[in-house]
Amino acid sequence: MFRLMPTNPLAAYIDPTFTEEQQLALMAKFGLDRPLWEQYFIYLKNLLQGELGDSFFYRQPVGERVLELLPNTLILTFSSLIIAYAFGIIVGAWLAWKRDSIAERTAIPLVLTTRAMPEFWLGMLLLAVFSFSLGWFPAGGTRSPGSEYSGYFDLYTSRDFLVHLVLPAATLAIYSQGLPLLLMRSNMLEVMNEDFVTMARIKGLSNWTVVVRHAARNALLPVMTSFAIAVGYQIQGNVVVETVFSWPGLGRELVNAVSASDYPLAQGAFLMIAVVVVLMNLLADLLYNLLDPRVSHA
């Protein structure tokens, strides 16, 4: 698919000192001188051996680069989505319970507003307020300049990392909490009218037990599915937030790779995202079993 793009990958390299022999040598080196179908089979063969090829631009193995950036992307995605979904589910359930109250009437337009805000605008707003004006949080990257960490675990558990994570994660969380919230609310409203909820009330159970044990548990199922889908969507959609907050993640890498016609790197990054999406769907299916025993008996 990338090969339909109208440019020659060597265009990213042009330099006044570049001779024709050098260009031909480069083409041959990357295998670009062979027919397209042959290039594809070579790619498939290497892929089966776990080999993603070398990036045209960085001249380094794609696998290494992608795996280096993946943890940053996953942490940002999951931390923001878990906050967004926890918040969305609780507030959504509560708003359904408080239907037609003043709280609900003010909350829903507010939520819709956050849904409509462009991510970069929200990100810049948070940057301007919390970083540049108040100075509470750093403006970019995953760590302070020149700080050293022995590994990912060391980095991710440091205070330094967490303060860097706050703003980008908050941007993504604010942006994505609307969907679970509205979904949860509408499911709850539907479930609350069902017979088994009425039954539970007749049994004389407390409001808390009715809402949480009976209604919410059933309303949660579609929300879990949307979580799995949101992860995939988010990893690709992170590029905006990664750019605003200088976050070294896969999204930015993917966009750079595409614009530099760096096919191996772009394909590697896409493949990695696809793997995460498939895994998340699997996880959602497994979670269904836990939340809804009916599924496993079917």
Partner: peptide, 13 residues
Amino acid sequence: ILRIVPNTEAAIG
């Protein structure tokens, strides 16, 4: 120390 900052406005901030 060279920091990669793709966002010009952020760099000024």
